[in-house]
């Protein structure tokens, strides 16, 4: 009766039974009610004009068309891209360098000290960190201005306002990617590194010909997760640069959703949500392509 091959990976229970469905039921129920239904509903609303009360009016793709011709959307999109790229590059470079250094033989004993210290910013709540950065970059109360003896208006001068946000993104995210890269580096066996050394490779050569190629799948994954996270940026710019929602010139894309919800344009808010999904998808596909070509 028992056919081990057929049952590989799962216990040999008969196929027709109710138990697995019962185990899945609570998850499935809450998934359907709070995920699938809202997703489908948001497609419907995005085609409607709806204020949150009264009747819905079907307007076709009007909401999308209006958003795409709307300056605010492009401004906030470009802002988001700016935050994304200007923070990602230093985060990735720093995280990788830190991981390489901490992984090197000479410092294995010190890993226990540096790992938690470098990861610590990630443990600080985003809201709290944003508010602290607001203080650090303040004109009069700010540590930066006090140390430099200057009075830059980091939080009000349009040319400077993105800087505190980018600094905070770098500060908070580096530790996370450092840990990811470090655990990736530990999968490279010491034998491989020793072999490279015996063959006379310098540490720079080892880095480019051994470490980086082995790490490639991890880089790929982190770029994608970083990009998705970056497009969902909301709390940092809004709380550093304002008490509620930052001015348009520095606002992230998600503000297109929230301001429309608050303003009672729920159709527009839904459409903005789908545009966000679209951008995330496009970016993911683009990055996957880029990495494929590099191979």
């Amino acid at each position: 009766m028992a056919k081990p091959k057929a049952a590989r990976g799962a216990a040999r229970y008969p196929k027709r039974q109710i138990a697995p469905y019962l185990f899945i039921f609570p998850f499935l129920l809450s998934f359907l009610a709070f995920f699938l239904v809202p997703v489908v509903y948001s497609v419907v609303i995005s085609l409607m004009k709806y204020k949150g009360y009264g009747t819905m009016k079907y307007v076709g793709f009007d909401n999308y068309r209006r958003l795409f011709t709307y300056n605010a959307m492009w401004t906030s999109l470009l802002n988001t891209l700016e935050y994304f790229i200007l923070a990602m590059i230093p985060v990735m470079i720093l995280a990788f360098l830190l991981a390489v250094v901490v992984r090197s033989h000479a410092l294995t004993r010190w890993q226990k000290v540096y790992k938690p210290l470098l990861f610590m910013p990630q443990v600080c709540a985003v809201v709290a960190s944003s508010l602290v950065f607001k203080v650090i970059f303040g004109t009069n109360v700010g540590a930066i201005n006090q140390i430099l003896g200057t009075s830059f208006n980091f939080l009000g001068d349009t040319k400077l306002m993105k800087l505190p946000v980018i600094c905070m993104l770098i500060w908070r995210n580096t530790g996370w990617y450092f840990i990811i890269f470090l655990s990736g580096l530990t999968t490279i066996s010491d034998d491989l590194l020793d072999a490279a050394k015996i063959d006379g490779a310098t540490s720079v050569q080892t880095m480019f010909h051994v470490t980086i190629p082995v790490m490639k799948p991890i880089f790929k994954l982190t770029f994608i997760t970083y990009a998705i996270g970056a497009f969902k940026l909301y709390t940092e710019p809004n709380l550093i640069l304002s008490k509620e929602e930052a001015p348009l010139s520095v606002a992230p894309f998600v503000n297109m959703i929230t301001t429309n919800i608050n303003g009672g344009s729920l159709g527009m808010a839904s459409a903005a949500g789908w545009i966000l999904v679209l951008f995330i998808l496009a970016l993911t596909v683009m990055q996957m392509r880029m990495f494929k070509e590099g191979e």
Binding site: P38, V39, S42, I45, K232, V254, I257, T258, I261, A269
Partner: peptide
């Protein structure tokens, strides 16, 4: 892959 921000409005 679907961001939670999409759900905000319908929810």
């Amino acid at each position: 892959m679907v961001p939670g921000e999409l759900l905000l409005t319908p929810q």
